[in-house]
Amino acid sequence: MIKIMPYGDHALLVQFSQEINVEIHRKVKALSELAGKLKGVQYYIPAYCSITIVFDPSLTSYSLLEKEIQEMDLKNDSEIIPGKHFRIPVCYEEEFGPDISEVAEFTRLSPKEIVEHHTSVSYHVFMIGFIPGFPYLGKLPNILSCKRKDHPRKEVAAGSVGLAGKQTGIYPAKAPGGWQLIGRTPVPLFQAKNKYPFLIQMGDLITFYSISGEEYHTIEKKFELGELKGKDFYA
């Protein structure tokens, strides 16, 4: 069951059952893609278990959109389109993941065990937020759960893979940030020059695998030369 409520005078909020799970999230994805195409919708923000929909009041109204979304929700179940599955290489060496020792201390695991756990599961992209193209991935194996850094970094390198609470994520561009950095991927999640600059979307699936520093530089070079593209990392 969804709940629809006003969000200011030119937006509405669709709330699903307030919990983090893949089943609910699939409905968020399916409904947000349909609702995003409704007449008068300017933009929409899908999250874990909600969708924020902003509209132009000169083209539609709250009550009309509410009715349209309710009707869509009723026949939504069969239209769930699975996302893409990516296999993303990550170099977990200290040079690329400066917080891996701190995380090792906190979790009482060795860096090698951290890598084994982090690469042991596939992650669902629950939300894109914080900065353009930043994927919030879950769920992280409980054993890797750790708090954010007490003092956020002023600058985190693009491609950095971090941990925060029960989540893991990837910085698509350099930005300030407080996540614990355990590695870095040479695969650009964000390519400004592309017509469609974002590699990953909410609803996609990501599995990480470990690479050496040397492999990191090889892949980085191949992207620069145009010999590798994002789609080469589909599982």
Binding site: I20, I45, A47, T52
Partner: peptide, 10 residues
């Protein structure tokens, strides 16, 4: 709360 959309004016 579980993170959700925010817009100018929120």
């Amino acid at each position: 709360m579980i993170s959700s959309g925010i817009i100018p004016g929120t």
